[in-house]
Amino acid sequence: MDTYLLAATDYPLLNIFWTMLELFLWILWFFLLFKIITDIFRSHDLSGWGKAGWLVLVIILPLIGVLAYLIARGNSMGKRDVAQAQQTEAAFKAYIRDAATTGPTGGGSHADELAKLADLKEKGAISDEEYQKAKDKILS
């Protein structure tokens, strides 16, 4: 039991902080590496050979490759991120707008369709039987 307590106190608090800092830096490094690799594949202004060259450089010599990529293409990397975010937001807004205008049946909400049917019935354009059949079809 004494050896267990001795082993637990043998690792000072400063070493714990240092280990946590190293772990954080490793996670940060892998995040940056994956971010750059995805940017290489997402870039439309690079040819296939250019993408292969950057990928080889980033994988074979990671520290030099990542720093060189950030220096050479860091500004355009940020612009591509902004363009991707704007494109995603525009697609999301278009989807919401389309879903709001078409409703569940594709031609408007149930309430709108029922109001149109009631208006047609009041004008005498459809009979009571036709109104009831159309209403049942909408509500089913």
Rank of each mutant, 00 (worst) to 15 (best):
W29Y: 10
D2L: 13
Y11L: 12
G50I: 07
I27W: 00
S127R: 06
T9H: 07
L14N: 06
I40N: 00
I64G: 00
A83V: 10
R73Y: 00
A83W: 13
A91E: 08
G78Y: 02
I126P: 01
F34D: 03
D128K: 09
L120S: 04
T38M: 08
V66K: 06
S76T: 15
R80W: 03
A8S: 03
D81G: 03
L33W: 15
I40V: 13
Q86N: 10
L23S: 08
G65Q: 06
T102H: 12
T9Y: 13
Q87V: 11
T105C: 04
E130S: 04
F17H: 10
A94K: 08
G78V: 07
Y11M: 05
L114W: 06
H110V: 15
E129N: 11
E89W: 03
M77P: 01
K116G: 05
Y69I: 09
L25Y: 07
F17D: 09
F34Y: 14
K121W: 14
A85P: 01
T102F: 11
L120C: 00
K135F: 08
L5M: 11
L63Y: 14
G124L: 03
E130L: 01
W29E: 07
L63E: 00
L139A: 02
F92H: 14
T38C: 09
F30R: 10
A111M: 12
A90G: 00
L139N: 11
W29T: 09
K79T: 09
L23P: 02
I138T: 02
S109M: 08
N15A: 02
L13W: 15
E122M: 07
W18H: 10
F30N: 09
A8Q: 12
P104H: 03
L32M: 12
D2M: 07
F17M: 13
I40G: 02
R42S: 13
F41A: 13
S140Q: 10
A8E: 10
L14V: 15
R42V: 05
